[in-house]
């Protein structure tokens, strides 16, 4: 093989560079944040679907909500348990979870995601 040494050094640098975020994660871990429920959400006990589903798939659900409300004009969501909710991130979701910084942002920041919802949807004023 030509330039054996150079190629191997190059490969090592490449591998280290591209795995550096994972290597960093191995060394330094930070515990996941606990999303904090607002009093109103605590009282309601259950979201529009069960907690497990919401944790895992709230983004897909919101995608569907968005399309159904804006594009199909269907602004009422009949949940799996038969309860009805107005399809609205700003009014229904944030109406109950009225503490977006402690409920939404914490996890989003931790996971390094910046959902573009907040470019337009106003968060309700948080009560101190």
């Amino acid at each position: 093989m030509y330039n054996k040494g150079k190629i191997i050094i190059g490969l090592v640098i490449f591998v280290v560079f591209f795995t550096s975020p994972f290597l960093y994660g191995l060394v330094k871990t930070s515990p996941p944040p606990e999303p904090e429920l607002s009093p109103k959400a605590k009282e309601a006990k259950v979201c529009v679907e069960n907690t497990e589903f919401m944790k895992e798939s709230h983004m897909q659900l919101l995608n569907n909500w968005r399309d159904e409300a804006v594009r199909n004009g269907k602004r009422l969501y009949v949940a799996t348990d038969g309860k009805e909710y107005v399809v609205s991130l700003q009014n229904t979701c944030l109406g109950c979870h009225n503490n977006a910084s402690k409920f939404c942002d914490q996890c989003h920041n931790y996971a390094g995601v910046t959902p573009y919802c907040w470019e337009c949807h106003i968060e309700p004023k948080e009560k101190e």
């Binding site: 798939s57 659900l61 995608n63 569907n64 269907k74 009422l76 969501y77 009949v78």
Partner: peptide
């Protein structure tokens, strides 16, 4: 497939629309 998943909940217009 994941996006399409879900419990087939229903969406309807509001009754007063």
């Amino acid at each position: 497939a994941m996006v399409g998943k879900g419990e087939e909940p229903a969406y309807t217009p509001e009754p007063d629309a």
